[in-house]
Amino acid sequence: MVNSPLINTTVAAATSHAVKSYGSGDGTIFALNDVTVEFVSGQFTAIMGPSGSGKSTLMHCIAGLDQLTSGSALIDGVDLSTLSDKELTLMRRERVGFIFQAFNLVPTLSAEENIRLPLLLGNKTGDTEWIKKVIDTVGLTNRLSHRPSELSGGQQQRVAVARALATQPRIIFADEPTGNVDSTTGTEILTFMRRAVDELGQTIVMVTHDPVSAAFADRIIFLADGKIVDEMLEPTAVKVLDRMKSLGT
């Protein structure tokens, strides 16, 4: 694989010739146009690109929230297109974690219930030690019984991060996780994500606009018009800004 930097690690998720199009005939829009990419275990990948370039679409299709028009998406080597709705749901529940930009939490459940939500849905207790560690790490121990409405935006996002980590998923997808919080909180959240990768060995794929956020990642994939146009390893904010300029965004 051309884009695979680390030959000897396992692949958590991948697409092969992924195409997602809307409409037909002359008016066809290609949100994804032949995307082949792999996300390796224990790596933090950022996806960047101009608005409408297909970042969210790519993420949704790999995460099993949306279906490809052609090509394939795999998680843990399983082709998502072979799964029924129920199997897909279980796949998301057990092997995928999500952090959305906003509205991450169920308003009627406490912070703790929100964190355990995927486990509760599967009627499982999960790894208690692990969850305790996660909650400690994100610093929510005192807020566990609070409802989302009683938490600040930053705290809510931290709960979302904890939820994504709670099940020890194969891969976590985050769509602009810091888009709705102030920069200090944003940095905090990104630091957690970084630590999750470094200390806990998580795999994370994150969509972002912001070069500073992207610099937290190990690797950046640049999308434009539904195609991968570039890739960068070990990014810094300055390098990213330069690359963005040269890509004309």
Partner: peptide, 13 residues
């Protein structure tokens, strides 16, 4: 939105 979120994180139909 809530239902969408629940479905995303693994609530079956």
């Amino acid at each position: 939105r809530e239902i969408g979120l629940l479905r995303a994180v693994g609530m079956t139909k």
